[in-house]
Amino acid sequence: MESDTIVMNETAITDALIDCTLQLADDSLIMGHRCSEWCGHGPVLEQDIALTNIALDYVGQSRNLYQYAALLLEQLPKEKALSLVDFDIIPEHITEDSLAYLRDVGAFKNHLLFEQPNGDWAQTILKIFFFSVYRFYLFQQLQNNADERLAAIAEKSVKEVTYHLKWSSEWVIRLGDGTDESKFRMLQAIDALWPFVGELFEPAGYETLCYYSDMLTFERLRSDWLNKINQIFETATLPPQSIGRWHQTGGKNGYHSEHLGYILAEMQFLQRTFPNAIW
């Protein structure tokens, strides 16, 4: 009787691990998608290159994570795997691409924040900054996760994230303390994005389960995040922020804003037009 309970818990933890991995992958992919929209349209050639580099890092991270999720899923009986992931075109094999291309809006678990449109350079920078700080502290804790592969992915990514954090902090400071216009645009960007930050620190059921072993606490994540944001905002002469109780939420559980549908329609159209073709 007792061993049954343990087995059940392990299954629940594996399921949660898959959801968590997908959640991380979806965040990376959607951020990569948004950043890649800038390619060829940046304010100056050097920064176009810089932002594309970051987009490449995000796409790379999402691939590592999807590949891992696919590996976990392929180890399960197919029926079981398909019950865990809501594909709307059933793939022959579960791969990084079937996970990215054959799930619809309701199956994506990314935070609402990251699917928001790019807006201007200020809003894009601020979003990357928020994401980088969040990922920096999350991955630092994740490096100790009981799951070795997830911990290894976190360890690799934390190097990239450290750079993104430096790059985006510097831009937040430049824009906040630059011209009147750039400061105004930063304030507008904060207004536009702040309603979505609360969701980052509101654990979904699968996160609580998956991160339980490494004592990852969302309270700590939130205070680390907010301290860093306010520290950089102070240097940037931007007003300090606090996280209130009311915020937009739902993405992590598949309830999204209208924007994600357009992203996926664009991203997935070839795979959906020619199911199971090789590219």
């Binding site: 050097e46 920064q47 290159i49 810089a50 580099n53 430096k166 790059w167 510097e170």
Partner: peptide, 10 residues
């Protein structure tokens, strides 16, 4: 700082 970062990227 920006020059060094760009140099890295470019």
């Amino acid at each position: 700082a920006m020059a060094i970062e760009n140099a890295r990227d470019v």
